[in-house]
Design a protein around this nucleic acid. Structure first.
Lengths: 212, 212
DNA sequence: TCCTCATCTTACTCCCGCGTAAGTTGAGTG
DNA sequence: CACTCAACTTACGCGGGAGTAAGATGAGGA
């Protein structure tokens, strides 16, 4: 069912850096499949075709191993967002690119997104903060764009950005769980349209809606 | 800091039903504050002013205790959504009411929303399914309304609904973590406007946007 | 007053999984 | 061929927390 990435003939010695990379890969597989708590250091070591103390020669403990992966993929998401928003000057295309980046992130890299969005270690302050900080930074990138084109306050622009990121995260995860109902491209387009309709020309309707 | 709900003078006997309710309340406090894994049955018992075996006379195990709470609050959220959508026939007001319900859910009941949205037991199939099913049912309620007014396909209407629910969940949680930047009412209104601008009159722009 | 039975307590057992002490192997060097 | 040192192994200590066995306690009826 789940093929070990590369558990070479248990007995092969590896130079330090290669081994470290391989251990991180093995750890990612196990953490993604089982979550932090149910993941056993023994299983990670096994999956790498190595014994447990080797793991501890590369990482001081289970937590640090996990945090290293979390850090890596959180940064990757923010970076993907940045690239998407810098890829064009057309705001409508920016919206599309932004959603595409989210869907790509969720679809790629061995489901690593589960570490970022579904961590079962959120109760640890360090993890909660990283998780919130990642959301924050994605929203900040989008917020800058919004502020350029609207006379909205900073707090409000930020909240709208959070809303857009929330849409992206939730729909991307839903889409992944239900492959088959809609192809990736169609899903991205649909949600991007919803977002663009929502955000474009915001100032124009603002005063009109105000009289409630 | 955290005041125990009602740890009556450790030594007071209670009739079975009262005790059960009190144990559920104590368990909720601990599960919310610590998450499933870090929550100890000893602490739950202590918080209720009772010894551990009493807990086991009311619930077969930690898991069942947790699932009882999860079930209760998941149902409460769906019910709040239903009420919000049934509260009016005006779709714009429906959107507002729907977001208000989400914010109220997040703001109320001792942060019980953390059980539904931030469970650290998602890796357990039973919990994952309940969590996804709750999202599904909320989206279904909204989807019915959308389908009444658009010629969109069922799959697409459902995906849009997921997007709206994602907006609500993410913004409500963000708002709760950052009280002070924006009052609840303003946040609800702002996000509701974004959503309404997004979906209202969907069919009108559909064909126009199609020519990309 | 004494009996009954539900409520509640103390004081364990047991398992699981992180982290480690101590010892082994083998590739490259003089 | 002997020496060295990093890479690796087996086998264990140990803490923490779920669940339990066996006994205490007290309200209410005969």
């Amino acid at each position: 069912m789940t093929a070990p990435s590369d558990a070479r003939a248990r007995g092969t010695r590896l130079p330090r850096v290669r081994r470290r990379r391989q251990l991180l890969a093995a750890a990612q597989e196990v953490f993604v499949a089982r979550g932090y708590h149910a993941a056993a250091m023994d299983e990670i070591a096994d999956r790498a075709g190595v014994s447990k103390p080797v793991l501890y020669q590369h990482f001081p403990g289970k937590l640090e191993l996990y945090l290293a992966l979390l850090e890596e993929h959180s940064e990757a998401l923010v970076e993907k967002q940045r690239e998407a928003l810098e890829s064009t000057e057309d705001n409508q295309k920016r919206v599309t690119a932004s959603f595409q980046a989210y869907f790509d992130f969720v679809a790629g890299d061995g489901e690593a997104f589960r570490l970022v969005f579904e961590s079962d270690l959120r109760n640890l302050p360090a993890v909660r903060e990283k998780s919130e900080h990642t959301l924050q930074r994605c929203a900040e990138l989008i917020g800058e764009v919004i502020r350029q084109d609207t006379s909205i306050s900073d707090d409000e622009a930020h909240l709208l950005s959070i809303a857009l990121v929330g849409m992206a995260e939730t729909t991307a995860r839903y889409w992944l769980n239900n492959h088959g109902s809609v192809p990736q491209n169609a899903a991205e387009q649909l949600v991007a349209r919803l977002a663009w309709r929502g955000i474009s020309g915001w100032d124009l309707t603002r005063s009109a809606d105000e009289g409630d």
